[in-house]
Simulated assay, not measured.
Amino acid sequence: MDLPVFRYHPDPIASGSIVASEVQCVCCDQRRGFIYMGPSYCEAELEEALCPWCIADGSAHEKFDASFVDEALFPDDVPSEVVEEIAFRTPGFAGWQQEQWMACCGDAAAFIEPAGHAEIRARHPQLEGTLMMHIVQDRGISGSAATRFLTSLNRDHGPTAYVFCCCHCDAKLAYIDCL
């Protein structure tokens, strides 16, 4: 069975937000072979309990009043219908602190993956300068300490870079999060 298509999270398996699993979905009561691993914001306990289809069609949002990304995290220029699509019908991702959803060209960007320095070097080398600028300007780290911070980025253990791609101009965007 093919996974649903998520415009703003095009490969949720590669990002780790959806994994192969025989767990039964608490929304549709089916075992579809995949389960959502990201955050769910609602009163019900939905950790590792929803299939991607119930997220995509909005039934998980309707049944549990669940959102998968905090709606307050979006820049003001992102249209409300896009915010709703991502918050209510798109798999989110887990960050170390409060997740951010990047935007470009007046639209939300597509989440690609959490990345460490190895993934940045291999798949997104154009982001090294952007991330270094973030480390120096936003974190106030400079010189060799900034280089050490950049090379310490780790997909699984933090600090971690979160990579996005603009849906219009294909620009790569990223931010860094850590404990």
Rank of each mutant, 00 (worst) to 15 (best):
L173Q: 06
C42K: 03
W96I: 14
A110N: 05
L131Q: 04
V69R: 04
P12N: 00
H134Q: 12
T90C: 10
D2P: 13
G38M: 04
P12C: 00
P52W: 03
E62S: 04
C104F: 03
P12A: 01
C54H: 05
M132I: 04
I55P: 15
C167Y: 07
Q24S: 06
M132Y: 06
P75A: 02
F74Y: 10
T147E: 08
F93N: 09
Q30W: 01
V19Q: 11
Q24C: 04
I112Q: 09
E45M: 11
G16Q: 14
W53L: 13
L73E: 03
P4I: 07
C25S: 05
V19Y: 12
P39N: 15
P79L: 01
W96G: 11
L127M: 11
A122I: 09
E119Y: 03
G143P: 09
Y175E: 00
I176K: 00
C169M: 05
V163Y: 01
A171D: 12
S40Q: 13
F111P: 11
G92I: 01
V19R: 14
H124A: 06
R31P: 01
Q137L: 13
G38H: 02
E99P: 09
W53M: 12
T90M: 01
C51K: 03
S152F: 10
A49E: 14
D177S: 07
A109D: 07
M102L: 15
F64W: 13
H134S: 13
L150E: 02
H168C: 05
P125R: 14
A44P: 09
S67F: 10
Q100R: 05
A161H: 00
S67Q: 04
S15Y: 07
A108P: 00
P91C: 05
Q30Y: 02
P91F: 02
A109M: 08
A60D: 09
S59F: 05
R155V: 15
D177P: 02
Y175A: 00
M102N: 13
E71S: 08
L50Q: 02
C105F: 03
